[in-house]
Each structure stands twice: as structure tokens, then as C-alpha cells.
């Protein structure tokens, strides 16, 4: 009894978050099944990418500022943070994070009379998100730090001439200029962070109840059918779409950041490789 494609979509469209058919397909392995399940897994790639980028943006700003600080007590930890996360493979970071998180006491920790539950930290949705968040924060901090250092001297002098100092100067002049200068490189970071989410279920973090990301299901099909020519191109297709969407959204933001400039001096977004981290 084979299902129609619509029935397949109903059964497996939300399988990656535990809704629909309990067991994965064991026969047929139709193109429709592969498209549906792999697409369902993409939910997790979106989840990891969007949340890590959102939280990571704020931390990255803080670390970029800390790296610029005169006080070594603030600067040194920020430099080490960036060094460790940018200097080692994400693959190893995932593995170490999982191994370290499972060491937390399972019963929870009592701090100052408050009971903290820890068992959820080892789940991919929390643990892997934490790693991706710290990882993208480190890479983005480096981008913003570079942008901060390349703000034209004249801009800062002009700001001071207008009587802007300290926090006001930072929030009205330095920060917006830093964002504007760093944005093209930050767009690349966003794209490759989405790509990096495919590593989650390949290093350390286990899949619960066969709920995984796009690559987890593609790998499932490739193992079952011994034919890599269908599932992997499907993931590739989904990711090209995703890349186009990310480029579009970040391009709009870039236009907004550059809206005050004459058209010929605006910085355009150019893709630069930053693949495996």
C-alpha cells in the first residue's frame, strides 16, 4: 500500500519535531518521501541558525567592544574567547560540549536555595544551540572588531567637534558605522552559520526518537537506498534556497544601513568563504 504524495506530506512533514508518523519509511523511499522528510529536518537548521544568530549578535557586539578596551582585564578574556572558538574546528567544539554537558549532575544543581534542572542541557536544541551561539559570537566579534578599527578618523573627529563624547558618541556614531562597515562580512557569517548547523547531529549530539535535521534524514536515505544521487542534491537544493533568502534579508538591512550614502559609494555585499569552522 503506497501513499500518495499528499498523504506522505501529512505523515512526515513535521516528523522532525515529533508530529505525524512515528516510524520512518522503511520501503519505497520515493522522491516525495525524501523531499518531505528532508524538508521537515530543515526546521531544525532554521531553528539553530535563527536563534544562534539573534543571540550571537548581541554577544558579538559586547565582545567586539571588550576587545577594544584599554583595560587588559576586560580585553584579554575577550581575546582568548575569540581565539579558542575561531582557532578550533566546530566539529571538536560540539563533541567537547556534549561530553562536558553530560558531566553536569543529572539531579540538578542547588545554587543559593534555587534548584536548577540540568538534564535539558545535553539535548541538541539547547547544547548545540549554545555552541553555535558562542561560535558565531566569536566570529562576528572579530568582524565587528575589525570594522570598529577601520572607522575613518575624520568621522570621530567631526563627532567630537559637535560635542559628542563617551556613550553618546558611541551609540550615535561609532556603533552605526561599525555595523555598516562590517555588514557585508557579517552576511557571509550568517550564511555559513546556517551551513554549520548541518554538523549538529554528526558530532556528539544524538538524535532522539529519530528527530533530526535535514542532513540527518538525507543520510538516513543514503544509507537505506545506497544512492547518494537523490537525497544529497535535495539537501543542496534546500540550502541554496536558504542561502538566497538569507542574502536577500541581509541585503535589505545593508541597504537600510547605507541609505544616507550616495549610490556609488555604498558597500556591496560580496560573498566570501568561511565554510567549515
Amino acid at each position: 500500500m503506497s501513499m500518495t504524495c499528499w498523504e506522505t506530506v501529512q505523515a512526515y512533514g513535521l516528523r522532525s519535531i515529533g508530529i505525524g508518523e512515528n516510524l520512518l519509511p522503511k520501503s519505497d523511499f520515493t522522491i516525495c518521501q525524501q523531499f518531505t522528510l528532508i524538508g521537515s529536518g530543515l526546521i531544525w537548521n532554521l531553528y539553530f541558525g535563527v536563534l544562534a544568530l539573534t543571540f550571537g549578535f548581541f554577544l558579538a557586539n559586547a565582545i567586539a567592544l571588550a576587545r577594544n578596551a584599554r583595560n587588559p582585564m576586560i580585553r584579554k578574556p575577550a581575546e582568548w574567547f575569540v581565539f579558542v572558538f575561531r582557532g578550533s574546528p566546530l566539529f571538536i567544539q560540539f563533541f567537547l560540549a556534549y561530553e562536558a554537558l553530560v558531566l553536569l549532575p543529572k539531579g540538578g544543581i542547588d545554587i543559593l536555595g534555587i534548584h536548577l534542572n540540568t538534564s535539558w542541557t545535553t539535548r541538541a536544541w539547547a547544547g548545540a544551540l549554545l555552541v553555535l551561539f558562542l561560535n558565531t559570537a566569536a566570529y562576528s566579534a572579530e568582524i565587528f572588531h575589525g570594522a570598529l578599527k577601520s572607522i575613518p578618523k575624520g568621522d570621530l573627529e567631526a563627532a567630537e567637534a559637535y560635542g559628542l563624547t563617551g556613550w553618546k558618541k558611541f551609540i550615535r556614531i561609532e556603533w552605526p558605522t561599525m555595523l555598516r562597515l562590517g555588514w557585508p562580512a557579517y552576511t557571509n557569517e550568517a550564511i555559513f552559520l546556517f551551513h554549520a548547523t548541518t554538523l549538529v547531529y554528526f558530532s556528539g549530539f544524538p538524535a532522539f526518537a529519530q528527530k533530526g535535521d535535514a542532513l540527518y534524514y538525507a543520510n538516513y536515505f543514503a544509507d537505506k537506498t545506497f544512492n547518494p544521487f537523490i537525497p544529497y542534491p535535495i539537501v543542496a537544493f534546500y540550502f541554496i534556497l536558504l542561502t538566497l533568502i538569507v542574502t536577500f534579508i541581509y541585503g535589505r538591512v545593508n541597504r537600510h544601513l547605507n541609505r544616507h550614502l550616495p549610490a556609488n559609494t555604498r558597500s556591496r555585499i560580496r560573498l566570501r568563504p568561511q565554510l567549515i569552522r
Binding site: F194, H195, A196, T198, L199, F202, L215, A218, Y232, V235, A236, F239, I240, T243, L244, L271, P273, L275, I276
Partner: peptide, 8 residues
């Protein structure tokens, strides 16, 4: 190669 995750 740029649009697709390299692990794939």
C-alpha cells in the same frame, strides 16, 4: 560550492 554546506 558556496551555496551548499560543504559537509554535503
Amino acid at each position: 560550492v558556496r551555496g551548499v554546506p560543504d559537509i554535503i
